[in-house]
């Protein structure tokens, strides 16, 4: 199964330079036009680390993640992905870099005309790989997120929780080094939230770097005994390391 860090692992490569992060933000500021939403934020995601990102609605969590996978170029500051300066990358390099970052988008972002299984296999197709030869991996992945029976359904026919699990499956299909999840438990009941959390912890144990944006403090608390997670909070346009109050 492809959930092992087999493809272009930044972890082994980072071994020569242990302190280097897979995603590094250096004094990043961003504004959508009227005033800074983020101001001089710096962060280094070390390989294999597990982070939560929290903060009130509208604080800029999604914006922060978008900067991390290069959907947004920040107004100021430097972004390095796997050691490469984002501003120096051409469009093809950005595309290749994104294949190493699995993203669970807050709104999932599926292609509504394709059945679930094709949506999950889409990153393979886009990377020039043959989804047919990966059929076993895809099936296993569907089992893992409990969606095997829904493989042929179109995304609009899925429940919120099913969509989020499917998004997780798509995020990991390329065996990425990093997984960024934006409110991955936003639409699901508590049991399902825990299951999704379990899946992400499982991925972390395989060596993946994980960053989860969530405003669900219960989720963060229930993760504490299971994984050595750090909690970041966006407050007053800054990134803070949350302490024992959680």
């Amino acid at each position: 199964m492809r959930l092992k860090p087999v493809r272009g692992s930044g972890i082994t490569r980072a071994g020569t330079k242990a302190e280097r992060g897979v995603i590094e933000l250096d004094n990043v500021s961003h504004s959508y036009g009227d005033g800074d939403l983020l101001s001089n934020v710096s962060l280094t995601l070390a390989p294999g680390a597990f982070h939560f990102l929290t903060g009130p609605s509208g604080a800029g969590k999604t914006t922060f993640l978008k900067i991390c996978y290069a959907e947004l170029l920040p107004s100021a500051g430097g972004v390095r992905l796997f050691g490469g300066d984002l501003r120096r990358m051409d469009r093809d390099q950005v595309a290749r870099t994104r294949r190493r970052i699995g993203v669970v988008h807050q709104d999932c972002r599926f292609l509504d005309h394709l059945p679930l299984i094709d949506n999950i296999a889409l990153p393979l197709l886009a990377a020039g790989l043959d989804p047919v030869s990966e059929r076993d991996n895809i099936d296993e992945l569907l089992n893992w997120v409990g969606l095997r029976a829904r493989a042929g359904a179109l995304p609009p026919e899925l429940s919120g929780g099913e969509r989020q699990r499917a998004a997780l499956a798509r995020a990991v299909i390329m065996a990425p080094d990093v997984i960024l999840a934006d409110e991955p438990t936003g639409n699901v009941d508590w049991d399902m939230s825990l299951r999704i959390l379990q899946l992400l912890i499982e991925l972390n144990r395989m060596g993946k770097t994980i960053l989860i944006a969530t405003h669900d403090l219960h989720l963060i608390r229930s993760a504490k005994p299971l994984v050595a997670a750090r909690v970041l909070r966006i407050k007053d346009r800054q990134l803070h390391l949350a302490g024992a109050d959680l």
Binding site: A95, V103, H105, A126, A127
Partner: peptide, 14 residues
Amino acid sequence: VIEVLRLIGARDSF
């Protein structure tokens, strides 16, 4: 569709 494809790592030529 184009946006989603770009986000999952598709190159322009694809």
